[in-house]
Design a binder for these strands. Structure first.
Length: 414
DNA sequence: TCTGGGGTCCTAGGACCC
DNA sequence: TCTGGGGTCCTAGGACCC
């Protein structure tokens, strides 16, 4: 059997661990720049607040004291995630983390899967403060379905298992096709048009028709709903690309200001892949004006380039990103978004015959920079071209980094 | 009705996920 | 006034090869 552990309303739950006054009341967590709602407590969901809704649409609720609000604190959530996931690994053995708040588990060999799941829910809550749900079934897609039921009905004590054919059919009849993992908005619409309302309707379709409409991924989802296991719990492959992008709180018209931010993206993305021992062979830069303000002059473009020798040196990524930016920047526009993406990531470096860079010296320098950052903080050392993207981020409702920054550690009154 | 056949590589765009 | 950010995979089509 395959299990899925899923943290309930994860970002909100993290905030609640350190601020119990958020317990039992409507809470939302906002995206970067406090743009839109990216997590909701059950109480906030019950008020009808939708995922992804712009904050200004619900700000009145906050001002009326009916809604509590937090800016996203990814450092805190990342650390809490590690605590939960390491405990899950310890209990289940073979696991694969699927996202910041979900892990799949291979439960082969476990006698009483449901009892195991119930115990996991209890233990994770007790040890980390985070409430989780566990879904168990013969395939990943069905385990996803099961975890939704575990959340929906209190009687399951946090763990639902789809263990036989009767349970499978009963469950699929209760799930709308759009709520199935792998069926997004477009396919849900297309399927509704063809008379498919529930996951069960879909599971009865002939495989040929599924294949014609949705290709190989659709067939995989269809088979998994029918109980066949098509995806194994295997370690994730190394990342193939890494991106950093930002929607700015204000618009930017000045080239130098934009170039400083793009340089910062290029440098931090390089640092990120370096931490994973990866190098990039391609780089792309994109910029765009405010797509929501159509009465303003619109412009968006991107440009890419290729590295002769795969690199994770911020000096090289900054130089490449700056050249790309120069080729697409048009004066007279108010830019609202920009991003840098490194692609073709690989573990090895193949030097070329005419490479002019001293690669060993480069490696030594980068190691020294990383060591200084590790000791003195991320902002202790930077390339002159970089400005600070985080400095222009707007976060009105930021909570402290309780678990990762010493001065933010929680105080207990005596 | 008719068009050779079999490949590879790259890119852009579209679907999906959290 | 104010609308996120980070990914994956597949497919179709074009350029090119023999």
């Amino acid at each position: 059997m395959i299990g899925l552990v899923d943290c309930n309303n994860f970002f909100v739950s993290c905030e609640r661990v350190f601020d119990p006054s958020l317990e039992g009341v409507p809470v939302v967590v906002l995206s970067g720049n406090d743009g839109c709602v990216i997590a909701r407590s059950n109480e906030a969901k019950a008020m009808g607040i939708q995922m992804g809704v712009p904050f200004f649409r619900v700000r009145n609720l906050y001002e009326a004291g009916k809604l509590r609000v937090r800016s996203a604190n990814i450092i805190l959530y990342g650390d809490m995630s590690q605590r939960v996931m390491s405990l899950v690994r310890e209990m289940a053995g073979k696991t694969v983390q699927y996202s910041i708040d979900e892990s799949f588990m291979d439960l082969t060999g476990i006698q009483d899967c449901r009892a195991f799941g119930v115990e996991m829910v209890r233990k994770v809550k007790k040890w980390t403060g985070i409430p989780v749900s566990v879904g168990i079934a013969s395939s990943m897609t069905l385990a996803k379905v099961a975890s939704k039921f575990a959340k929906r009905y209190k009687g399951y004590k946090g763990c639902c298992m789809i263990g036989d054919e009767t349970a499978r059919v009963k469950a699929l009849r209760l799930v709308s096709i759009g709520d199935v993992w792998g069926i997004g908005r477009q396919y849900a619409k297309a399927l509704n048009l063809r008379g498919v309302e529930t996951a069960y309707d879909f599971s009865l379709w002939p495989e040929r028709e599924v294949s014609a409409l949705m290709g190989v991924n659709g067939v995989r989802t269809w088979r998994e709903l029918n109980g066949e296991c098509c995806t194994q719990v295997t370690p994730p492959k190394a990342a193939r690309s890494a991106t950093q992008s930002q929607t700015f709180y204000k618009t930017i018209t000045d080239y130098d200001e934009l170039a400083g931010l793009v340089a910062d993206f290029a440098a931090t993305t390089a640092a990120r892949i370096r931490r994973h021992g990866l190098r990039a062979t391609t780089l792309a830069v994109w910029i765009a004006t405010d797509r929501y303000h159509l009465y303003e002059k619109q412009y968006a473009d991107s440009a890419g380039t290729r590295f002769e020798v795969a690199t994770n040196d911020p000096r090289e990524t900054i130089a490449a990103a700056t050249a790309c930016l120069k080729s697409i920047f048009r004066p007279g526009y108010a830019y609202k978004q920009a991003g840098v993406s490194l692609g073709g990531l690989q573990r090895y470096m193949q030097p070329t015959l005419f490479d002019k860079v001293d690669r060993q010296g480069q490696e030594r320098l980068l190691k020294s920079i990383d060591a200084i950052k590790a000791r003195e903080g991320n902002d202790a050392i930077r390339i002159a071209a970089q400005s600070s993207a985080s400095a222009i981020r707007h976060n009105e409702f930021r909570s402290p980094c309780y678990t990762t920054v010493l001065r933010d550690i929680i105080r207990v009154k005596v």
